[in-house]
Design a protein around this nucleic acid. Structure first.
Lengths: 147, 147
DNA sequence: GCTGACGTAACTGTAATTGTTACAGCAGGC
DNA sequence: GCCTGCTGTAACAATTACAGTTACGTCAGC
């Protein structure tokens, strides 16, 4: 489907900020997060900007600038992140509108629309069941690399 | 997500063939289906080729060539079509592997992997609940355009 | 051998994602 | 009042996938 990594990177960033704050720091910089995620700081700032628009994080400017959580990790779900970061639907319709003179061409879009809506609703429900708190817990539960 | 229309077009093609066969015809051509879906016959042949590999349709060559269902519409589910037509996962991991020296960078991929697997399993379950028979029923239930 | 459609390669256009550079703007410290 | 470090955002390149299109070899029945 040519899936993208936006949800993954956004969850990574939130988990990173959350852990960093638990260690006593006030704000995290896009530079630090980008290093952990092995990507470019601008990519992180873009994603965090969308999360801020959704009210999940806050940013400070000036000296001592950076990013902090607007809500606790336990109150943020993957659905919140998904909706902030993925605008479009899961499945697309025909590019060109099908032949309306054909029975199938005429009825296929409303039919699939209805089916897709139900499926996306289920997906949302599943995403809503996973909090970022659980994500961080799973992250920390990963087996340590033996040196 | 940059969603594609492959599942939609494949379902369209199967519903079209199914209806056409119920009207007494033996095989449908990619040309006819492409006209209904308002796309190119090659696009249809490519998709139907994948459905054939999955055992959902059959094709004849030579004179009187075309496509026919290998199984009844009531025994084909959207999951069958989805698996035939969409190879990859729903969500992607990081492009570059994250910093393994960072706790989050190290644990994020197994954590998200596990979460994503559960979600995709639910998606599959939902897709499996919809038969192509139901799709065709919904298609035919669409309100007629008044002339 | 003629015909009509499949099977598939090859190429193009378009769009999305990601990475990257560049630079203006802000806020606190000196 | 200027310096500094980071945000905010524009702009562009590289890569990739999807969809559309053309072209042509292949097959099977007449």
């Amino acid at each position: 489907m040519s899936a993208n990594s936006r949800l993954t990177i956004a969850a990574h960033a939130l988990a990173w900020i959350g852990l960093y704050q638990r260690q006593g720091h006030e704000v995290a910089t896009s530079e630090q997060i980008a290093t952990s995620a092995n990507t470019n700081p601008v990519v992180i700032r873009r994603l965090l900007g969308e999360l801020r628009r959704a009210g999940l994080v806050e940013s400070r400017r000036g000296v001592g600038a950076g990013w902090s959580l607007a809500r606790g990790l336990e109150s943020i779900t993957l659905l919140d992140v998904y909706e902030a970061v993925e605008p479009g639907p899961l499945f697309a319709m025909h590019r060109a509108t099908p032949d309306q003179g054909c029975v199938v061409g005429h009825g296929i879009q409303p039919a699939m629309q209805g089916i897709y809506e139900g499926i996306e609703e289920t997906l949302r429900h599943e995403l809503a069941r996973v909090t970022l708190e659980k994500v961080l817990r799973d992250v920390l539960a990963a087996p340590r690399q033996p040196l």
